[in-house]
Every structure is written in C-alpha cells, then in structure tokens.
Amino acid sequence: MKLIQDMEIKDKNEISEDANSRVYELGYLLVPTIAGENIPAVYGDLKDVITTNFKGEIISDEMPKQMTLAYSMLKVVSNVRSKFDSAYFGWVKFNMDPEQIVELKKHLDLDPNIIRFLIIKTVKENTIATKRFVERSRGVKRTFTVKKSDEALTPIDKEEVDKEIDALIAN
C-alpha cells in the first residue's frame, strides 16, 4: 500500500510541475561579426542564462550555424545602425515557468549579440522530420532498383542454363 501511495504522490508532483512550467523554444540570430571560435562560448553563455538565471530546463538544442539571411536585417546598437546579410542561427528548446519567460525576453532584448529572436510555445517531442523522410523515400527507391536488376539477371541465367543443357544433349 505504501508503494502505491508513493506512486500516486509522485504522479501528482509530476502533474503539478507540468502545470507550472511550459515547453518553449527560443530561435535566435547571432551577429555575424563574432569569430567562429567564439561561437561555442556565446552559445554556452546563453544556455547558462536560461538554466541558472531563469531556472529553465533544457530539452534539446542546436549549435548556431552560419547562414545567409533571406533578406537583410537592421539592428540599432547604441545609436549605430548596422545591416546584416548573414547570421548564426541556433535554437534551444526548454521548460520554463510562464512568469520567467517574460523576464527572459526582457533580458534578450538588451543582448547586443542577438540580431533577432523568437520565443514560441511548442511540444516536448522532436518536431523536425525532414531528414527521416528523405532517407525513407530513398531507401524505397533503392529496393525497387535492386528488384529490377534481379529480374533482369534471372532470364539471362536461364538462357545460359538452357544452352549448357543443349550442349550436354548434343554431346
């Protein structure tokens, strides 16, 4: 009985945790003027801010990667306007209290390294599915080609066998 009671209590705790925190995703563009070697440091700092300052729990993330932007963006830092055509794009998925997320947004607004960022509500599961499909469809095509080659090979074999039999009979 004790065990069952413990289990129930645990379940209740989990539910209450879920109710207090939500899954969010932060997508951000880092300024391209940062050198490639310094990117891991900036990325680590950002994750630290989420986990320590705002008590978030990181679920998954991806390293910022250099990319060309679809259009040029402007950012004003201390009255200097700068135009960007490329950036480092990265994202982090995490659990956080809805009250904390507002504070996180205020913090990120003041970050000079970030051109733009986007915070959205999302689900815990992995949502990127592209790679899987491409592989699957390729796999299917490959199997078809293999089958065709097998079919093409078999009749040749039969003919050869027939010839061999004919030769044997002639002998």
Partner: peptide
C-alpha cells in the same frame, strides 16, 4: 520569415 529563414 521573421528569422530570415524564408523570404517575404
């Protein structure tokens, strides 16, 4: 589009 992944 907002994050520059797709064009406007």
């Amino acid at each position: 589009r907002f994050l520059g992944l797709l064009p406007f």
